[in-house]
Each structure stands twice: as structure tokens, then as C-alpha cells.
């Protein structure tokens, strides 16, 4: 279960098909290749408002991986600035309609609501965690960045990011496993059994 240091890292490509998404297990470490889409609070509000109004979304949501990030501006010669994940729970209210339209993956940090965990099971999708606060490291795995919609939102604009070997851990899978709940619990149990054994 644990994403141990020596464990094999699974390569996944986008668009992320439902079959692959269903195979991923909480604790598994992955590297992502292909296009993912940067969207956080303001872009989510607009995406979902558009869907509710019956408008065509600015990106194809089928097999899409959304990355909760608002990058810093790129320095000269760079494609993007610091680009680590933001707290995912703020996007919880928007998840269900997006999964219903074909989104199969989300990247962020921190735990999700029970409703989101249930929606992952229902739609066969995954929630991936990247390391919060590792924005310079993660930016190094982004090869291209382009604003797709809502440039007026600045760091919150919807962007297409071309990634190569973008590192993440499966935090919640399509079978209802949640690493943010299981990991600390397992750590406490292991620590306790070490202390008893001493």
C-alpha cells in the first residue's frame, strides 16, 4: 500500500482513460506524461457555471486531468514559474459535475470530502497528490504552458500544461481508499507495535 522509496513508479499518459484510472491504487506513485489542465478556484467556478448554463467547455473534459495550481509568472527563458498544488478541498463543491462530464483525474494536495471520495468510486476517477510547497521542483517537469481561457484571471486562468514525468501519489482511488486517512493511521499503528515490541 505504501509508496515505498524503492517501489516501481507507474507511468501514466493523458488523456487518462477510465480503465487505467480504475486500476490505480491509493499509495501508488506515478509519473504523468502529456497534457494536463491548470485550474483553481476561479476557473472552476466558471467551468461549472458554464456547464450549468449548457455551454460548451473551453477544453475537452473526457479523460482530462485537472491540476489545482496557480503558478507564479515565468522568469525569462522559462515556460512557467513555481507551480505546486493548492489545497484541493476548496474545489470539492465543483467535483461532481466535472466527473460527470468525463474528468478522470485531479491533482492537488490535502484531503477531500466524503462526497468527493464517493464520486471517485461512482465515476471511476482518481485524486492524485503532488507535494505541496515543491513548486520549483514541479515546475521543472512542465515543458510548455499556454493560457486556454480567461486570461483576465491572471494566475487563476485556465492553462494547458505539457508535462513529462510529473510526480504524484495516488491519494484517493476508485475503490474508496484514501491515503490521507489510511497513511497516518497505519503509521501510528506501526509505531505502537514497535514500542510494544521493544
Amino acid at each position: 500500500m505504501s509508496a515505498c522509496g524503492g517501489a516501481r513508479i507507474r507511468r501514466i499518459e493523458t488523456p487518462l482513460g477510465g480503465e487505467v484510472a480504475r486500476e490505480l491504487r491509493a499509495g501508488e506513485r506515478v509519473e504523468i506524461f502529456g497534457d494536463i489542465y491548470a485550474a483553481r478556484d476561479a476557473a472552476h467556478a466558471r467551468l461549472v457555471a458554464g456547464l450549468e448554463a449548457g455551454e460548451k467547455p473551453p477544453i475537452d473534459l473526457r479523460g482530462c486531468i485537472l491540476y489545482y495550481v496557480g503558478p507564479t509568472p515565468p522568469r525569462p527563458g522559462r515556460v512557467i514559474g513555481s507551480a505546486g498544488p493548492t489545497t484541493a478541498s476548496r474545489m470539492d463543491p465543483y467535483v461532481v459535475p466535472l466527473l460527470a462530464r468525463g474528468v478522470t483525474g485531479m491533482i492537488g494536495k490535502g484531503p477531500r470530502s466524503p462526497e468527493v471520495l464517493e464520486a471517485l468510486v461512482c465515476h471511476g476517477a482518481v485524486y492524485l497528490a503532488a507535494t505541496g510547497g515543491a513548486g520549483a521542483l514541479l515546475a521543472d517537469r512542465i515543458r510548455a504552458a499556454e493560457v486556454i481561457a480567461w486570461p483576465e484571471l491572471g494566475p487563476e486562468a485556465l492553462r494547458r500544461l505539457r508535462v513529462e514525468g510529473f510526480p504524484a501519489v495516488v491519494a484517493a482511488d476508485s475503490r474508496g481508499s484514501d491515503l490521507y486517512a489510511l497513511g497516518p493511521k497505519r503509521y501510528r499503528q506501526e509505531r505502537q507495535s514497535r514500542e510494544v515490541g521493544r
Binding site: C4, G5, P71, R75, A83, G84, T131, G135
Partner: peptide, 28 residues
């Protein structure tokens, strides 16, 4: 914990990259 070790290694590498001037430590 191997998971936490991995995160701490990433954070130390991140600090080295940021100090080199490629990008700020965190996007926030």
C-alpha cells in the same frame, strides 16, 4: 516513514532549485 522521507527529499531538492533562481520556493 518512506512516504514522508520522499516528501522531505523533494522539499530539500526544491529549496536547492529555488535558490538557483529557476522559480520561487512555492507558487503561493
Amino acid at each position: 516513514s518512506p512516504d514522508a522521507q520522499h516528501v522531505l527529499e523533494e522539499l530539500l531538492e526544491n529549496a536547492r532549485l529555488a535558490e538557483g533562481g529557476s522559480a520561487p520556493l512555492c507558487q503561493d
